[in-house]
Amino acid sequence: MDTHPSQLPIPFHESSEQIPDSGIAKVLDRMRQRHEQEAIAAGLPDWPENKRGLPNGALRSALFGISPKERRTYAVERHVASIEGLAVFITRGPNLMQHHLDVWEQCLRLGKDQGTGRRIEFTAYAFLKSIGRNTGKSDCEWLKNALYDLAACVVRITDGNRTYFGPLIHGGTRDELTGRYVIEINPKIALLYGAGRWTQLDYAQRQQLRRHPLAQWLHAFYSTHASPYRYKVETIRNLCGADKETELKKFRQVLRRALTHLEAATAWRCCIDDGDCVVVEKQGRCQIAIGIAGTVLEPELSTNRPPDTG
């Protein structure tokens, strides 16, 4: 997992001043609020031009999946598969795929540079060029639909003691004559960038994998691991948002091809071992045994409105 001096730790400092028992809760609550406000005001952390900074909650789950079949599903309080320690829900809106992640990471990059909570302006042409896409009419339509999906998808991501809920981008405007967009990134999304809770993706490597969504998902997922765990093939199938009806045997074949693409793009050593576990080794680092990180929170799908706990 990448760390960076400009990450946004949200410390809760203990005061040396004696606080009456009756006032401790109120004082700590004010401290938390103040540190949250400072983190939000600081905006997104900085990262190099050749990287893309993303919250681990979006990468260690099936929030941005790979199944075209799942893409056609409109979620209502859908619990997304994730590793233990995360809780990820799509509370309303379309399910998202890897191409949505391509668009969202560029929106976040613009939010880093231009500021969250402010007008972020760009043309369809410039945006498409920046993510390595063609700039024809169909590509402009593709971008429009991807932005609509990101604005329509309301998520709830809990990582540790912080929960973000809201759309992945706020709404915006589009000039039909010039193709110029104005969007906004919710400043509160900065709370997902606490220390150790975000990762810098290698942009050039991800670009090499653009036409291989499973390889892209694997690249993003394993980029959050400094020394990756071994995960069962079945665990990876659940985590990446693959079609639930896909037989494990067929998924394993697709996975082997994706690992070949991943290895070529990153120089990581990637394979499936005799225990049917995915092995990804970076710069000769040894893997940790199967265990803690092999636990997956299974997704649940409800088409009913959740009860009002009001």
Rank of each mutant, 00 (worst) to 15 (best):
I90H: 12
F64R: 08
F127E: 05
G53L: 00
A41Y: 11
G65H: 00
E121Y: 01
G93S: 04
L54P: 06
K69S: 14
R118Q: 09
K129E: 09
P94D: 09
S130F: 00
E105P: 09
A62R: 02
Q37R: 15
Y74H: 15
R60H: 05
P45Q: 05
R60F: 03
F122V: 04
A62W: 01
G117Q: 00
W104V: 04
I120F: 07
K69F: 15
E36V: 08
P55S: 05
L59V: 08
R118K: 08
L108V: 06
L110H: 10
G43R: 07
R72K: 06
L101K: 08
G57S: 03
F127N: 05
T91L: 12
R78G: 11
E49Q: 14
V88F: 08
L96A: 01
I131H: 07
L110G: 06
A41R: 11
G65D: 04
S82T: 00
R71V: 02
N56V: 01
L86S: 02
F122G: 04
G111S: 08
W104C: 10
Q114M: 09
M97E: 15
E49R: 13
G93P: 05
Y74P: 05
A124H: 08
S67H: 03
E84K: 14
G85W: 00
P55R: 00
V80T: 09
G57F: 06
T116P: 15
S67C: 07
L101V: 01
W47Y: 13
R109C: 13
N50T: 06
T73M: 14
G111D: 02
L96P: 05
P68G: 10
R60G: 03
K112F: 14
G65V: 01
E70K: 10
A39D: 06
L59C: 06
V88P: 14
K69I: 13
L54Y: 00
T116H: 08
W47P: 11
H79D: 01
L44Q: 07
L86T: 02
Y125I: 07
T73V: 15
H100E: 02
V88S: 10
L86D: 01
I40D: 13
P94N: 10
G57E: 04
W47M: 13
G43I: 06
T91G: 11
